[in-house]
Simulated scan of single mutants.
Amino acid sequence: MEKKKIFKDLEDFLGTHFIYTYDNGWEYEWYAKNDHTVDYRIHGGMVAGRWVTDQEADMVKLTDGVFKITWTEPTGTDVALDFMPNEKKLHGTIFFPKWVHEHPEITVTHQNEHLDLMLESREKYETYPKYVVPEFATITYIGNAGINNDDVISEAPYPGIIEDIKSGRYFDENYKRMMLSEGGS
């Protein structure tokens, strides 16, 4: 049986791949790519299907085993996440601009390939009032992906991807993407 990883310092947290479900049912996948960059895929909620790579973020250790990550997306959405991985808990607050709440479909894409559209939409539509979503979440998966692993979040979410990851059908022993014979792309 594999020994449970204990998180204490930021170095323990970096390179970790998480899947978590907010109490409102929204499911997210998130990767601490390095000390200033995160990748994520959204599997449930109003922007399900959205995925982002190389998002600049601020990451700090608040106290042993507790980490705060914050960033602002090109959409104007602000995010603040407090990870408590030893307890398999997280608290997140997402501050959606009014335009994202009213037109979430615009953002449901690989953001990196549509930055101009995100910036254009941010200018075209109303920003305020912000739609604030503060929620607790349960971490349902923790993987040691290593630093700067571009295989972690490398494709759009598809039905069944979470099950493929959790069951060991998605990554090999080196945390590299395997080709799936069925289910995935």
Rank of each mutant, 00 (worst) to 15 (best):
M1P: 03
D9P: 00
L10N: 05
L10R: 08
F13Q: 03
F13M: 09
T16S: 15
T16Y: 07
H17K: 10
F18D: 04
T21W: 00
T21C: 03
T21P: 00
D23K: 13
N24C: 07
Y28T: 05
R41P: 05
I42Y: 05
G44Q: 05
G44S: 02
G49E: 04
Q55W: 09
Q55V: 11
Q55G: 06
E56F: 10
A57D: 05
T63N: 06
T63Q: 11
V66H: 06
I69N: 04
I69K: 05
A80T: 08
A80F: 00
L81M: 06
D82P: 00
F83Q: 03
E87Y: 01
E87N: 04
K89G: 00
H91L: 02
T93E: 09
F96K: 00
F96T: 00
F96H: 03
W99F: 03
E102N: 09
H103A: 02
T109R: 15
N112R: 15
E113H: 11
D116L: 10
L117V: 15
L117E: 15
M118Q: 14
R122L: 12
R122M: 14
E123C: 11
E126H: 12
Y131I: 07
Y131S: 13
V133M: 14
P134L: 08
P134Y: 06
F136A: 07
T138P: 00
T138L: 00
T140M: 04
G146I: 01
G146R: 01
G146N: 08
N148A: 05
N149S: 08
V152T: 10
S154I: 12
E155S: 15
P157D: 09
P159T: 03
G160A: 08
E163K: 09
D164E: 10
F171P: 03
E173M: 01
M178L: 15
S181A: 11
S181E: 15
G183S: 08
G183C: 08
S185G: 14
S185Y: 13
